[in-house]
Design a protein around this nucleic acid. Structure first.
Lengths: 347, 347
DNA sequence: CTGAAAGCGCTAACAA
DNA sequence: TTGTTAGCGCTTTCAG
């Protein structure tokens, strides 16, 4: 019977071992207990260097990869933060996702990404799936969620950070900026250039709609005629921008200033304008949103709204981590990162 | 003592229950055992409708969300497939990620996304993290991995699908196309239009480099002068494209055809050409890569290389799922999805 | 068709 | 500093 202990020959370097290596295999090889292996890996400072090195060597030799499912189940900390984004491909959120990954990674957390699609339809199902994985924190883009989603989130006891928007009724924490202020500011910006006949081209997105609404309201306030409005599908493309300008010229020939809900849309407007030999910014001023890399290098260089997406990601991650670590810090729960209009050539 | 069982009042609807609801809570409420709840949720057909409905009602009432960490640990199936992509923001892979999500979702799997950054530097660490979560399958973009990564993957006993490229030595399964063939085809395409002085503008990416190499080799084969080559950083931007054309014109004024490693780069070349009043396709032909939405609507419309990214994602997902389900099907392990040159106006 | 027992791999809590 | 025991929440297995 005692010889049976010698059956384990997984460390020979053969492919596809029958059973994945566990702490016990490592412990055996290092001549310590499973608990010591666990400690050597998770709290290295609580283990003397000599022991730690023996464990490390055994980890290397066995190619041990801890089972984070088991870690998470037992410790009730999955070291996972989920982020739910409307569209993974959208360049608008790229910086935020990048910063989330980096900031969380530095703190030993992994990012779990989900795509909700615009609108709360897909979000509920996704949320269910996400919560099932027991993330330690959840970062959401946007503040428009179904009542059910809000309840689920509030009740599941996980820190939640809503981002890329502001609201007076956050679920928990908040890092964003006012889309209404953006709309108003861009309207004033265009009006300040003497442009009176304005228009909005925006994708099907609640935040873009909020910018558009404030834009329109501000135009009214300034005594300008009601801005024309063209809606396009999400995701917004260069083609949508071209088509939108065509439509605008057909129906509102005198348009003098256009606020687009994305830089790509704005690039489309610029492209169509060039094609039709319409002077930008001479006859029409164009403003984008997002300050993507393409904005600065467009022809003419695109005036646009800059939002510090990286900061949003960083601050959201820090808030999630902080709350996980136990700091309540309610006075820091909400943050307005603001925005700026980057004046270039197109308006 | 028996009264202690009545202490559980978590179902009152109060916020933030102290303890998350488990199968036992649901079982109690439905008047069945935990096992029956599990079966009602995972194998509904094996439970009579009446019981199933009682369980469903209890799930609703308690807002039960199964702990997938525990499910995965016990059943050894995490219902998770990991995908590792060089850049999450890159529109090139957007279709693939979309198709992966959809195909996996339809089969009851979730997609776990990771970003490796170009090059195998970040990939190894990421792989470790990913494997720790015990995915049921792993989808990789690219076939260039460190020796260590290849071993880890081969040994961990998880189905692996490499994508977006071909190789004679795949780790396991393969869905992609030949980048060398792309380079050769584009070279022949430009040469077929009588263009002899060619150039390549490409980002720092192994696959782009392979296309460039074959492009150059084919030019040699066709008796053309050696193509000029401009390298730019990843991710490729419109600005990089503009700058590349400037550089090209300064050093190789007679250039007649340019192959760009992305559509965005190509759009930059078109923009700079328009700015300098250089006729496209008259004096210079421009070919992109990726057939992004912007290609068709650029001015002039961009000739580019189309790859069916959605198909890659779908086929990769199906292969991963199939292997998980137990079908070895080695004859279907590799798939070449090919590519096509979409001739538009720019070349 | 249903339930009881056992245990997935790990770490919290306690003890030595 | 190290080890032992127990159990996280679920499902496999086997017995009714």
């Amino acid at each position: 019977m005692p010889l049976k202990q010698e059956v384990n020959r997984l460390t020979d370097g053969m492919p596809t071992p029958q059973r994945a290596t566990t702490v016990l295999d490592v412990a055996r090889l290092a001549g310590v207990s499973a608990m010591t292996v666990s400690r050597a890996l998770n709290q290295p400072q609580r283990v003397p260097a000599a022991t730690r090195q023996r464990v490390q060597a055994a980890v290397e030799a066995t190619r041990y990869v801890p089972n984070l499912l088991a870690c998470g189940l037992r410790s009730r900390r999955s070291r996972l933060v989920a982020a739910i984004v409307p569209a993974l491909g959208s360049p608008v959120f790229a910086e935020t996702v990048q910063a989330l990954t980096a900031t969380l990674g530095a703190a030993g957390y992994h990012l779990m990404l989900g795509q909700s699609g615009y609108g709360p339809v897909g979000e509920d199902a996704l949320l269910q799936a996400v919560i099932g994985r027991r993330p330690d924190g959840i970062v959401l883009v946007g503040v428009d969620h179904s009542q059910r989603a809000r309840q689920t989130l509030a009740r599941c006891g996980v820190p939640v950070v809503e981002t890329w928007d502001l609201t007076s009724t956050p679920i928990d924490m908040l890092v964003g900026f006012s889309h209404a202020d953006v709309g108003a500011a861009v309207c004033r910006f265009l009006a300040g250039q003497g442009r009176r006949r304005l228009a909005i081209v925006s994708g099907a997105d609640g935040r873009a709609a909020r910018r558009a609404q404030a834009f329109t309201a501000t135009a009214d306030l300034l005594g300008l005629p009601p801005p024309a409005r063209v809606e396009v599908e999400a995701p917004t493309t260069l083609g949508h921008g071209r088509q939108a300008l065509r439509q605008l010229l057909a129906q509102h020939a005198g348009v003098e200033g256009i606020f687009c809900s994305s830089d790509m849309l704005a690039l489309g407007v610029l492209t169509e304008a060039a094609h039709q030999r319409i002077a930008v910014p001479g006859r029409i001023g164009v403003v984008g949103f997002g300050d993507q890399p393409l904005a600065a290098d467009a022809e003419p260089a695109l005036t646009t709204v800059r939002v510090d997406g990286a900061r949003i990601g960083r601050e959201a991650a820090l808030r999630a981590i902080g709350r996980i670590a136990g700091s309540p810090a309610p006075e820091l729960a909400a943050l307005d990162v603001g925005f700026s209009i980057v004046p270039r050539c197109s308006a």
